[in-house]
Write a protein that binds this DNA or RNA. Sequence first.
DNA 1: ACTTGTGCCTCGCTTACGTCA
DNA 2: CTTGACGTAAGCGAGGCACAA
Length: 283
Amino acid sequence: MLLEKEDLALSLSLSSSANRFDRLGLVPSSSSSPSRSLPSSCQQWSRLLLARSERGGAGEARRGLRTIDVNQPPPAGAAAGRPDSEEADASSPNSGVSSVGGKRPAEREAEHDAEPSCSRGASDEEEGDGDGSRKKLRLSKDQSAVLEESFKEHTTLSPKQKLALAKQLNLRPRQVEVWFQNRRARTKLKQTEVDCEFLKRCCENLTEENRRLQKEVQELRALKLSPQLYMQMTPPTTLTMCPSCERVSKPSFSTTSTTNPPPSEAAAPRSLRPPFLDAPPQR
DNA sequence: ACTTGTGCCTCGCTTACGTCA
DNA sequence: CTTGACGTAAGCGAGGCACAA
């Protein structure tokens, strides 16, 4: 159990690290799937694009289904306060908007033949469906593993994939949907933590760099005050900046030879900044 | 061409439950 | 046995997009 958790955390952090490397350009972005290699903000955009592309595909099926099914009443019980709270729950997420239309045609169809399995434990019968209290059912290890594998392939599911997965795992499509939703949330949370840590380190490095430069300025001023040394020294204007990478080249002489080299991250070119700093506004 | 209504999807936030120390 | 912390399945509302009327 503990190991499992750690494994999950590890996989999360590993994928996050991969994202970080991708951001820094250390890993060719083509080495991982687009959605997973992108930072969270970019993932938002890719998600939109993905959603659009998926809707392009799934939308056609939906359109097809809609023409067939849109005006059909939901299966008996689904709309009319079925005593089974599971089914009621399954339609609730969209209750805000689907109070009129009810369940999605595809799901309606699927859930009709894919009876609620309620996974292991399945003590559904004695869990009093009538009281309206929501049941929480833990997914089995196998189910979680399959879902995890699927998530690695794609972080969002098309309706077809969702149905297939639900059927394969003997779950309701709604459960698969919720699992992916929560999984995306966990991934994002993890990524945010990684981003925070990265920014923290950047801040520390920049502070250190600032301290170093201040010290250097002080030393240069001190040199300027002593004429003999000042006349002998080579021009201190060797602090040139490369316009392309914005790196400051080291002076040929060093009055601060004991100072540390600039931290790699602090000296990183602008293109390596965390992309979320340049990210478009999120909603 | 533009507007409006509908259906669907995803997200963020939250709640409730299961597990463990 | 109880309790608090933690992980996670699930509920809810909001926003956005596609599509049809």
